[in-house]
């Protein structure tokens, strides 16, 4: 697969890419309106049913683990070392001079769940939207044809360049380049690997530009597309729901402020430990798989 798109026929798949782009933006808006880990957590969790209903559970769980690694680092490192707010207010004293501070932990938790909810929404979008549809949607939004093509062709180019890089790596090893040498040597070796890659990629792009000319890319006049896209009832319903949520959220923000409920130590500890648990599940899964691979 060249992109992260997962074929399907769910409600989400059938939405217009433009609707989904608005959806991602609205999630970003929600999570930045409030500075409250509980709320961010709720947004994240409320996205999970959509993941399930779109039939994207397995690919989602596979991809989200990289996000969890990041989130694990953020909440842990911030909680321990971020000197923001009241540093005397300690939530969890680990050792004499190592402790999770209350304010720092709030920041870490908010950031973590922001990343998770925005990440989930984006994954939902990318996994349910065919890249060609994305390009088409952009064209409809008056993004120039050429820019939309560039975005689309990136999806295509990445695996090709990846494969090319492997061939070049082998070709240079065949010239006695020791790729397993020490770090300094390896940095020096970037030139023999990247120079040919750059040249071949450049030649490839140059040729592509000629191919495009021959296919009438720069011909003036209206363009058509094989993929049909119409904004229908579904999209309007979905957009209305988003608009209602947004309205509610903005009102809430205006009336109550950035924090909805008082943030207790219990909430923060749950966030921290929760993220640790999920991360360790992924970690043990990874360990188990590598061991099994070695044995088999």
């Amino acid at each position: 697969m060249n992109s992260m798109y997962v074929q399907g026929n769910s409600f989400l798949h059938q939405l217009d890419p433009r609707t989904k782009i608005l959806f991602v933006f609205s999630i970003i808006l929600f999570v930045f309106l409030f500075y409250d880990p509980m709320f961010q957590f709720l947004v994240t969790v409320s996205l999970l049913p959509i993941v399930f209903l779109s039939g994207l559970t397995t690919p989602y769980l596979k991809t989200v683990k990289f996000m969890f690694l990041l989130v694990f680092l953020i909440i842990t490192v911030h909680g321990l070392y971020n000197p923001m707010g009241d540093v005397t207010k300690v939530t969890w004293q680990l050792t004499e001079n190592l402790s999770f501070k209350h304010d720092a932990l709030i920041y870490g938790a908010v950031m973590s769940f922001r990343i998770l909810s925005i990440g989930t929404a984006t994954l939902l979008f990318v996994m349910s939207t065919h890249p060609s549809d994305l390009a088409n949607a952009l064209v409809k939004w008056k993004v120039p044809h050429a820019v939309a093509f560039m975005i689309l062709s990136t999806f295509q180019l990445i695996p090709i360049i990846g494969r090319e890089a492997k061939v070049i790596m082998e070709a240079q090893q065949a010239r006695c380049l020791d790729v397993k040498a020490n770090m300094i040597q390896r940095v020096k070796h970037l030139i023999p690997l990247f120079a040919p890659l750059f040249i071949t990629s450049f030649m490839r792009v140059h040729q592509m530009s000629q191919v495009l000319e021959c296919r009438g890319f720069s011909s003036t006049g209206p363009k058509t597309s094989l993929r049909e896209m119409t904004i229908g009832f579904r999209d309007y319903a979905f957009l209305t729901a988003i608009a209602l949520f947004a309205l509610a959220a903005i009102t809430l923000r205006a009336v109550v402020g950035g924090t909805l409920l008082p943030i207790t130590d219990f909430v923060l500890m749950s966030a921290l430990i929760g993220i640790w648990i999920v991360c360790s599940i992924y970690f043990f899964d990874f360990l188990w798989k590598s061991v099994r691979k070695k044995v088999v």
């Binding site: 890249p131 060609s132 999806f155 296919r215 058509t224 094989l226």
Partner: peptide
């Protein structure tokens, strides 16, 4: 080849000329 599927590849040039 620049498109995501075989049919879109053929469609690409056709789309360009409308």
């Amino acid at each position: 080849l620049s498109q995501m599927s075989v049919e879109e590849e053929v469609a690409f040039g056709l789309g360009n000329i409308g």
